[in-house]
Amino acid sequence: MTLALIFEQLLNGLQFGLMLFLMSAGLTLVFGVMGLINLAHGSLYMIGAFFCAVAAGATGNFWLGLAAGMAAAAAAGALIEMLVIRRLYDRDHLDQVLATFALILILSEATKMVFGPFPLYLNAPPILSGTVNLGLVDYPLYRLALIGFGLLVALGLWLLIARTRLGIRIRAGENDREMIAALGVNIRALYTVVFALGAALAGMAGALVGAVQAVQVGMGEPVLILAFVVIVIGGIGSIRGAMVGALLVGVIDTMGRFLLPRAFAVFLDASQASGIGAALASMLIYLLMALVLVLRPKGLFPLHA
């Protein structure tokens, strides 16, 4: 085990964390502004990946595919917000869970019907293929680009929320939705826009990760559950919390899977060590979540402190 390997795993963790941030940002924004828990967020991730794979395959251009994936996810988000989600804002969380669980069933089966039951493959753009020398390691250029991309989007999102009129309305909506409606802001339209924005971010994450993993039905739900862990750690509704939580989860999960089996190998035989190490590593982030809950039941950055 060398320094180079650890460095490489750290970068992988950072990349994973930033992709988780794209997922968690929309989820936490929708909860913060509308008070809605959306299980179907993972389906929007899947829709982004599928449309990207098909559009990129048809045009031969990854970037067109990425745009198509984001547009499709945003459109699907706006559509389900207007058809279903809108009726759920005044309902309790149980109804929201059930209705969005139903949406997962519908969207997963519909995706299967439209795109077929087999996984699709999406290639990273040629300009980002190969590796780049970072001194210690040769690192895949595409993964490095994902890190840059994630940071860029995070910056853009921060600017949007801190510096634009839409951002002011979003922040106002988090604080007092009756008041901003009374001030003449079209709250229905605002909700649709926020939901579509979150959907576009999820679709972007799905498309970007789709080039590293297979694009298949059900790809969204494991990421969705990790995004839940992220926003529970970060504090539900807080974008800053989502960023910190996503990076913590990404790095700790990746490093745990890398280091724990090796740590157990010091005093156990190889096969036993890899089994116990892997099993414990898969539990690490949940233990982190439990720890945060014990110390800070409302997360690291509670929205209404």
Binding site: I37, V97, S282, Y286, K298
Partner: peptide
């Protein structure tokens, strides 16, 4: 210790923790 949405997400996450443990425990 929590309620509402936090409770929903946390029970889900703990179940998922045991699920992944069962998958990776040979």
């Amino acid at each position: 210790r929590t309620e509402g949405v936090f409770f929903i997400m946390i029970t889900l996450a703990f179940a998922q923790m045991v699920y992944y443990f069962a998958i990776s425990w040979p």
